[in-house]
Amino acid sequence: MEWLVHFYALHSKLIDQIGINAIFALSLSLTLQAGHLALANAAFGGIAAYVASLLSLSRGWPLSVTTLIGAAAAAAVGAVIGLPVTRLRGVFLAIATIGFGEIALIVENNLSITGGAEGLSQIPNETTTWKIYLVLAILAFFFWRLRRTRAGWAIAAVREDEYAAASFGIDPARVKFWTFVGSAAIAGIAGSLYAHENFFISPGDWGFSRMIDILVYCVIGGAASPWGAMLGAAIISLLPEVFRFLHDYRDIVNGIVLLAVVIFAPQGIAGLWSRDQRGRKAAAAAEGQSR
């Protein structure tokens, strides 16, 4: 027990980081489960982080309230952006969402209320480990239940075959839109937790490279599996710690692991021991995602 306390004292920051990254990974996995590649989660996390932080700073509201409002703001922006962009196919959706992310970044860089390039500081440090993992547990439960609901089946159907799904009376456009909005909301929760963990946020925290990190979590773990996404987030968050001795060449490990997974284990790490054939097929379908 004493060992555990000691371990936590030493690594609490990293443990928190893994939890927040896992929530980001779950947010992306929602759209991946529906078979589409939208890359604005980092931007949505940023929007929520700014909204929640500004509320904490100016009103002093508690974390639960500011996080919910932040996530709602991200979802609202997601709905406005989602209407036109979720109609785009494959790579074009990815590009449109990357473009949106860059615009959000530039706006944050130039507004005075967001503190411009310097960002916001002295954000109350209200995020704690148990809060992060409580949120993660609730989300994991939600994803687990989702599979067995009508909405869950609709999402799986759209991923497997949009046209077949449509012939069963499922509207693929609606599924894509709502998974996009839901994904924005979850990313928003992660963003707000991040802001209240780190005292300080700036536009650079929500750029393309952060988005790539989130995508990497999902791919390493298994593109269409929420469990894989969380696992991937944990592994990739730990890698830099393990390979600290490589100094400047540290990132190379990320690149090699990522390349190896895509080439040798396209269903991700979750797919390596998954006996669940449905899961395997789902991941394969996400990989060979129709355009």
């Binding site: 991946l32 590649l37 790579v91 990815a94 790539i212 995508l215 990497v216 791919v219 593109a223 990320n254 690149g255 090699i256 990522l258 390349l259 895509v262 080439i263 396209p266 996400a286 990989e287 060979g288 995602q289």
Partner: peptide, 10 residues
Amino acid sequence: ALGPLISSIA
């Protein structure tokens, strides 16, 4: 597909 996009990032 997602695969080539990711491997090029890697």
